[in-house]
Every structure is written in structure tokens, then in C-alpha cells.
Design a protein around this nucleic acid. Structure first.
Length: 273
DNA sequence: TTTTTTTCCTGACAGC
DNA sequence: TGCTGTCAGGAAAAAA
């Protein structure tokens, strides 16, 4: 069984919380860029020269983006599939280490990403953060309700709509599967066919599941962060994700795996209608 | 303009 | 053993 670790909203929240504890107010003394393509919206020289001398002041999350407010700049990171941050006392560089931030106090912030899918963005402190501009509502935003979903849904499947960051920000493949199981909705249902009751369940499920995952992340990260770094490998106890062939504990049917919009989709054919 | 397909990456794994 | 091919996937670019 393959290890799924792509960071979604709960993992990103835990990463930003953990980094805040570890590097708040530390100053960037130097940066080494080993793989420039990680930096999306600037030349490496500009990135390095701008951030040198800056200190990490505030730590935020928007969707799956990590947002670091420094003195004069904002550093934004998307971990995509396998991006990880390590805070170390030594610059432990491997072939998958793409950026090294040398921090005050003898600490090193290392960005590690096997598949090199992650991206970093730099903005001036008073500039609009372009890469998060199109994101939809946060799952916990009070404005997220049935009428908001009805306004924004399109004719694609409910799964695709849940993954659409411009509608709700922060839900990825794993949690989309779990949320639809929670709501007893088949992932291939047309979004526009959902009843108010089902939409309500989806919103409720999103909040319940993501909240629980954040709580779990907060507790589990503590035990391994010093040894393993800060990544997204703590995960909610899943009901369907990676459970193909196992028995649904709600109805006793066998969990199936299909593909929806090119993504592995697990669901229970017995209770997800 | 809108929708679909391709691209980016590497490691794990299957099959020969 | 070692090679080749396929798959995993978030999001944006490229193509249709």
C-alpha cells in the first residue's frame, strides 16, 4: 500500500503552527537555492536578496498555502504533493533538498520535496498575494452555506467541485473522499442534482472531518517532529481512503475504487448514493 | 471563452 | 538482476 501524504488543509495548518513555534522572529541570514524552479514568481537572485535580513513575524494559512509574513516581504509556499519543511541544527542536504534558509540562532530551515512539485512565491508586504486571489471560501467560513454552494456549483461531479479550490479552499483528494462518505453521497453525482439536505451534510462533513484532522495533527506531530521534520504524514483515521476491498462499517458493503477526474476515488457503493 | 489535455517530477512497483 | 513501462497527483500551462 502506497503511503499517501499529500498535505491538505489540516496538514498545512499543523505545519504552519509548528513552524511558528520553531522559527518565529528568527532572521534569515542566508539562503541557498539548489533547485530554482521551486521559486515560481521571481528570479532566485531577487528571492535571496530580498529575503536576506528579513525575520519571520506572522504565520498564516489560506487553503493549502502557507503564508509567512516577514518585515518587508511575504513568503508563500504550496507544498503540493510532497513538500516538507525541516528545522535542523545542521544543514542536512540531500538530493531532495531544494532550498536552505540559514536562520539566526544556528537553525536551518530546509525545504525538501521529492517530486519537486511544490512552489514558493514572494510578494512585497503591501502587495496583493496573487497566488491566493482566486481561492474560494475556507471550509470554516460562516458564509459557506447551501446557497453559496448553489451559486457556485457547476455541471461537473460533486467530487470535482469539492476539489475545486475556487469554490472551497483546502480540500484535496483524500478528504474529498472522506467527506462524501460522511455525507453518503456518490462521488460521481452531478453537483447540481444534490438536495439541500445533501449539501448541508457535505458542509457539515467538511467541518467535522477537517477539524478532527487538525486536532489529530496537533497531537501526533508532537511525537515525531524533532526526528522526522514537519510534513503531512499524520492523517485522520480514514473510512474509505485506501480501503479498497474492505468492509464499510456503516452498511457492510465492500469499498470500491474508481477514477473520477483522473484521481483515485474510494467510496462505498452500499451507502453512497 | 470555455473545456480538455498535457506537463511537471520521482519513487514504487509490476512484468518480463 | 536489470530494464522498461505504468501509476500516483495539485494546479497551471497549453491545446482544442
Amino acid at each position: 500500500m502506497k503511503q499517501n501524504s499529500m498535505p491538505e488543509l489540516p496538514e498545512v495548518q499543523t505545519v504552519i503552527n509548528t513552524l511558528e513555534k520553531q522559527i518565529k522572529n528568527k532572521t534569515i541570514e542566508d539562503i541557498k537555492v539548489f533547485y530554482p524552479k521551486i521559486i515560481d514568481n521571481a528570479e532566485p537572485d531577487y528571492f535571496v536578496n530580498s529575503l536576506k535580513g528579513e525575520s519571520f513575524r506572522e504565520f498564516k494559512r489560506r487553503g493549502k498555502f502557507l503564508i509567512f509574513y516577514l518585515d518587508n516581504y511575504i513568503l508563500v509556499t504550496h507544498l503540493r504533493m510532497e513538500g516538507k519543511f525541516f528545522v535542523e541544527n545542521l544543514p542536512l542536504i540531500t538530493k531532495h533538498t531544494h532550498l536552505e534558509f540559514d536562520l539566526s540562532g544556528g537553525k536551518y530551515l530546509l525545504y525538501h520535496d521529492v517530486r519537486k512539485f511544490g512552489r514558493m512565491y514572494i510578494y512585497k508586504i503591501d502587495e496583493e498575494i496573487e497566488c491566493i486571489k482566486k481561492l474560494g471560501l475556507e471550509p470554516f467560513d460562516e458564509r459557506l452555506d447551501v446557497s453559496y454552494l448553489k451559486e457556485h456549483f457547476n455541471n461537473k461531479t460533486v467530487k470535482e467541485n469539492l476539489l475545486d479550490q475556487s469554490i472551497i479552499a483546502g480540500i484535496g483528494n483524500i478528504y474529498a473522499n472522506e467527506i462524501l462518505y460522511y455525507a453518503s453521497v456518490h462521488p460521481e453525482r452531478e453537483f447540481s442534482s444534490l438536495t439541500d439536505e445533501e449539501l448541508t451534510k457535505i458542509i457539515e462533513g467538511s467541518r467535522t472531518i477537517l477539524k478532527r484532522a487538525i486536532e489529530l495533527g496537533g497531537t501526533t506531530i508532537h511525537s515525531f517532529q524533532s526526528a522526522k521534520g514537519i510534513d503531512g504524514r499524520f492523517q485522520l483515521e480514514c473510512k474509505v481512503q485506501n480501503k479498497e476491498g474492505s468492509i464499510c462499517d456503516r452498511c457492510g458493503s465492500t469499498v470500491k475504487k474508481i477514477r473520477v477526474a483522473g484521481r483515485g476515488t474510494y467510496y462505498c457503493p452500499g451507502c453512497q448514493k
